[in-house]
C-alpha cells in the first residue's frame, strides 16, 4: 500500500511539526549526553595534563601522574583491600540473596510482606543508616572494626540489589519447570541445582558484577565500619580532603576504564541470555 497516497492534505503540516518536535527532542538528548559525559571527559583529559592545578587551558601532555600512582604504596594497598572486600561481600551477598529471592518467588509464608519490605529497604535507605546502626551494634557487643566488618556491612547494603535482580529473573521462569522436576522425582536441592540455577545463571552473574562494582566504590558504610585499613574510595576520599590533584584524575581514569570493561562484560552476558531465550 502506498503510504503517501493515504495521507490526508493536513498531514504535511503535522509532519513538519513532528519534525520540529523530534529536532527539539534530539537537541535535548544531545545536551543530556553532554551533561552526563563531559565531566567524565574532563576527568580523563586532566589526568594527562602536565600542571599541578586543574585549570583551563591545558598546558601539556604528561604520564607523570600515572607513574606516580604505581609507586604509591598506600594506594596500592588500598586497592588490594578493596578487591578483597568487594570479592567477599559479593560472594556473601549472593549466598544470602539467592535463597531470599527464591523464598520471595516460590514460597508463601506468614510475614512475607514484612520480609520483603526489610529485604528491599536498603535500596532506598541511605548507606549512612546501615553504617551507623552496624557500627553501634559492633561497638555494643565489643567487636573490633576491620575489613571484615566492612564486608558484613557491604553484604547487607547490597542484598537488596541482588534480590531485586534475581527475583525479576525468577518471575520469568515458569513455575511448571519446578513442578515437572519434582514430578520426575527430584528433591528440592536437585531441582534447585539442575533446574532453577541454570535458568537464573546469567542474572546471578549480572547481579554479582553489579554488587562487586558497588562494593568496590562504596563509601558511606565503609566510612563507619572500617578500622585501620583503607579501601580505595576511602583512600581517595582522604586525599581529596587535602586538596585536588591530577593524581586523583589519573586514578579516576583507570577506574573509568575498569568500569567500561565491566559494562562490556555485563552486556556480553546479557546478549548471551537474549540469544538463548
Amino acid at each position: 500500500m502506498n503510504a503517501v497516497a493515504m495521507t490526508p492534505p493536513r498531514a504535511g503540516k503535522a509532519r513538519s511539526t513532528r519534525w520540529i518536535a523530534d529536532g527539539a527532542f534530539m537537541t535535548f538528548v544531545c545536551a543530556l549526553m553532554a551533561f552526563l559525559y563531559l565531566p567524565i571527559a574532563v576527568l580523563i583529559v586532566f589526568s594527562f595534563n602536565d600542571s599541578r592545578t586543574l585549570t583551563w587551558p591545558l598546558s601539556g601532555f604528561t604520564l607523570d601522574w600515572y607513574v606516580k600512582l604505581f609507586s604509591n604504596t598506600a594506594l596500592l594497598e588500598a586497592l588490594g583491600n578493596s578487591l578483597y572486600v568487594a570479592s567477599c561481600a559479593t560472594v556473601l551477598t549472593l549466598m544470602v540473596g539467592i535463597p531470599a529471592a527464591i523464598a520471595l518467588d516460590r514460597h508463601q509464608f506468614p510475614g512475607k510482606a514484612v520480609f520483603r519490605r526489610l529485604l528491599l529497604l536498603p535500596i532506598a535507605l541511605p548507606g549512612i543508616v546501615t553504617g551507623i546502626s552496624m557500627l553501634n551494634m559492633f561497638r555494643i557487643f565489643g567487636f573490633g572494626l576491620s575489613l571484615e566488618t566492612v564486608i558484613l556491612g557491604h553484604a547487607t547494603a547490597l542484598l537488596a540489589v541482588v534480590v531485586t535482580q534475581i527475583f525479576a529473573r525468577l518471575q520469568r521462569v515458569p513455575k511448571s519447570y519446578g513442578e515437572a522436576s519434582s514430578d520426575l522425582g527430584a528433591n528440592g536441592l536437585q531441582t534447585f541445582w539442575y533446574v532453577t540455577l541454570p535458568n537464573i545463571k546469567t542474572a546471578i552473574i549480572g547481579a554479582g558484577l553489579l554488587s562487586f562494582v558497588l562494593s568496590f566504590d562504596e563509601i558511606p558504610v565503609t566510612f563507619f565500619l572500617t578500622g585501620r585499613d583503607n579501601t580505595l574510595p576511602m583512600y581517595i576520599y582522604s586525599t581529596m580532603r587535602r586538596g585536588i590533584t591530577p593524581e586523583i584524575n589519573a586514578i579516576g581514569t583507570l577506574i573509568v576504564l575498569a568500569s567500561a570493561l565491566l559494562i562490556l562484560a555485563s552486556v556480553l552476558v546479557l546478549r548471551d541470555r537474549s540469544q538463548r531465550s
Binding site: I40, V42, L54, M240, V256
Partner: peptide, 22 residues
C-alpha cells in the same frame, strides 16, 4: 555512569565548578 565511581562523579564537579576550577 552508575558503574563509574560515585565518589569520582562528585569529585569531578568540584574540579569543574571550583574558584580555580575549569
Amino acid at each position: 555512569p552508575l558503574w563509574v565511581s560515585y565518589l569520582l562523579r562528585a569529585y569531578v564537579w568540584k574540579t569543574i565548578l571550583g574558584t580555580e576550577g575549569i
